[in-house]
Design a protein around this nucleic acid. Sequence first.
DNA 1: TAGGCCATCTGGTCCT
DNA 2: AGGACCAGATGGCCTA
Length: 277
Amino acid sequence: MDNNELKNPADLFATEPPMFVKGFCHDLDGFGQDTGDIRKPGHIFASGSNADDDEVTSKLNASHGPYIDKRKGDFLMLDILNKSNQNNCGCDDDSNAGETDTEMESFGQYYEDNEISGKIKERKPKSEKVVRLNINARERRRMHDLNDALDELRSVIPYAHSPSVRKLSKIATLLLAKNYIMMQANALDEMRRVIGYMNASMPAVTPSSASFDSFTAFRRYPVELTEVDAYDEVFSSHQRRGDRDASGGSKKTADGGQTPDHLMSGSQLPSATLYRK
DNA sequence: TAGGCCATCTGGTCCT
DNA sequence: AGGACCAGATGGCCTA
């Protein structure tokens, strides 16, 4: 695509190729192939490491509730842990391991009875449980922060913010953000050309030096457009993966909802990115 | 029911 | 040593 060509911003926003996605899609494909059988619903995995914690989480957040509910669950788990420590007179040694702390026992079952491939793991002291739970909590917090940042990014991306439209997935958010940045960069570039043209033909309307500096400043940070050729390959990869939206344009969802054309045309997004709630 | 998306746990690695 | 970051594994929810 000629970068100097005047474009409809919406079209550019929708069709610019996702440069960084190639490896990502490849990884996703590999992921699906490698673990597809394991991930089928109902599969019972021997480790059970997450199962026990998930069981607790499920009790706290019936039916995979909203994001915030999961956080409640996390904090509750830590509360239980703290209570456990209090019940143990605040002692932080391992001497109290395996005692009457039934709450701790219930959600920390993994640490007690974890079984992989028939091998019983040794019991871990409570201090290790505390360390592990703290690490888990930190990781959860880190991912929550990451998701918060993604939410902020979503909030500034011009897409359908209607409550009837499901929020963008993580990958869609990143792709659209990238396209939006490229669209803005191209718009600036085009404006710069127009101003240059006007400047040449009508010296009397020369823009102020200050505004012109902003364009030259922009040129110091040129947008890399040379890698966009990879898009076709990436896009076709999406199609190979069964992207039903590959034809682009609006589509009706099962309950009659309609996705925004400017987002779906070009189909750079994974399927089921946007649909009515 | 398969596949997409997600949250979470976990162990490893790197950095301070 | 502790925290941040990362990637793999797992299971749940939802949609087509």
